[in-house]
Design a protein around this nucleic acid. Sequence first.
RNA 1: GGCUACGUAGCUCAGCUGGUUAGAGCAUCGCACUCAUAAUGCGAGGGUCGGUGGUUCGAGUCCACCCGUAGCCA
Length: 684
Amino acid sequence: MSEIRDILVTSALPYANGPIHIGHLLEYIQTDIWARFQKMRGHHCWYVCADDAHGTPIMLRARHEGITPEDLIARVAEEHRADFAAFRIDFDNYHSTHSAENRYYANLIYARNRDKGHISKRSITQAYDPVEHMFLPDRFIKGECPKCGAADQYGDNCEVCGASYSPNELKNPRSAVSGAVPEQRESDHYFFRLGDFEALLKDWTRGGGLQPQVANKLDEWFAAGLQEWDISRDAPYFGFEIPDHPGKFFYVWLDAPIGYMASFRNLCDSPRGRAAGLDFDHFWSKDATAELYHFIGKDIIYFHALFWPAMLHGADFRTPSAIFAHGFLTVDGQKMSKSRGTFIKARTYLEHLNPEYLRYYFAAKLGPGVDDVDLSLEDFTARVNSDLVGKVVNIASRSAGFITKRFAGRLAPTLCDTGLFDAFVQAGESIAHAYERRELSRAVREIMALADRANQYIDEQAPWVLAKQAGQEARLHGVCSLGLNLFRILIGYLRPILPGTAADAESFLRIGPLTWAALAEPLLDREIAPFKPLMTRVEPAHIAAMLEASKEDLSAARPASAIEPTNPHLARDPIGAVVDIETFAKLDLRIARIRSAGPVAGADKLLRLELDLGGETRTVFAGIRAAYDPRDLEGRLTVMLANLAPRKMRFGTSEGMVLAAGPGGKDIFILSPDAGAEPGMRVK
RNA sequence: GGCUACGUAGCUCAGCUGGUUAGAGCAUCGCACUCAUAAUGCGAGGGUCGGUGGUUCGAGUCCACCCGUAGCCA
């Protein structure tokens, strides 16, 4: 740890046409843990990311919603930022590929490669939608599988029999955009001559920056021969127009990785970047000495390990120090599934569970390889409860009481067992080594072994026995103070994984943000705050509720098909007359917790809800019985109109109204506030 | 279909370049303890290391084939 390193880290850019889900989070959490670790070690580590905002799917989605692509990506960016912040993904900068910086670097990288002869032009034949007047990407052509005949399959592969083929092999092809029969049309395209870089890439592959599994895969691609890469798309397209070829646009995958540079440039030019003296060239110039790492999923290795370094090299920029690929997330051993409720959005997770749990669980299972990671919900519950609540937090919990009650909250002036303390400090080297090599599961195992030793120590010393013996005050003081010191080291080691819990522990111990180096110095002869539970157990009921809510998301979500015409809800029920703010202010909307829900005898559409407003309880009858199982509602937060005149009904008085959307019957959806809202808060 | 990986106790995973009776956590069972968010400590049972064949004095660890899973095929 002698030398301070300059490190730039990225995660793959999430696509700006949908919400973040737990599969995405595997990567952001992995990267965030690694970046936080580097910062804790005192290195200058910068973690940047951006929304990937271009391409046909975004263009079509925006059109479908009746808004501009710019409005769509702005809205999605806000959602993404909120989700990342809630999971404590600590980006130093979060930008967009639809930005001035990205346009600049995309143009520059293209122009330099072109000037060196690495761009070629040729005409290709492609499916064309004569109604929409646009060329169709493979994903937007549907038809019958040429192998098994399954209907409604995409243009690149069949989800029924698994065959892969080219779109023109499809039987009865249709445009997924207009439904028209696609025509074959010619168009000029521009190609990046990847083959020009074979020697460079082979060199780079052998340079040690790749995982062995990834290098093997690359060898396969080298053996097959490097093909030219089509980097242009025809209008209409949402992206950057190629400067010297009007009507042609850069393919989204060309400017996506350039987004890493653009985000970093944006950071350099920000007040924060300038204050830190961030120098773009120090990180990106051909002879840059700073380290550059990209965390990615194994599905996009081709782009990051071949195209990206080649493009950079061709444009006289440096190549990445390493690419870190990870596997995919499965839930209970299977692909995430919408119908099983395991396609869990970040937002849905946050409504039910603490983000620290997921960060810990992923860390406990992530290694340096490209193996898939399984989120076993049963294991998740057991592991978090046992490791974090039962072992780690428990050490503080069982030591702190004595310190507070018997010693006025003051820690002992000396360590009573330096051997154990030193062993904990020394273990840090091995743990740091594991973090550095992204062996997060190993780091977690080693940390938990230390937690076991701390609990063993407390058991051996039996402070509860010492507390009852006269003349053992100093021993008791020493044992419990050591217990808290061991806890402090453990929390320090876990801090990259559990930033929220670590912050709470730091305020409990009344210390500043822990650094790795600070852990070697014990905390002595000073006051700590009274202990409050730092983490509560995972409740299986919350997991069940989360899965249920994920299924609800599905039924609430609009069909994915791009063919669907304009939104039917507005047509059926147009937006009402304008009101002024005073009129709105008369409505007192409050966050409420559904304390209990149950059927109403004699009313087959109603549920009786007991709503907790944080001190006041209201009874409300809501016509949602066909849409909700009462058990799923209990414990949920929702929004109610609190100052609606009470209304006497046959079964009792309804003291307010719960807000919900939808046509009625089974299709009715009550509102849920974001995590953090508490009963009684006013909605305004 | 081709390729790259992966397949170890009920569950989730360790097992470095092949070498003593295959390890951990959780779960299960027994005992102890009661400071702690019913948390902790001690102990026990539980695996022919996906299958078959091979290389070797010796294979979970190497090779071949088969089965299953994931990704890629630009």
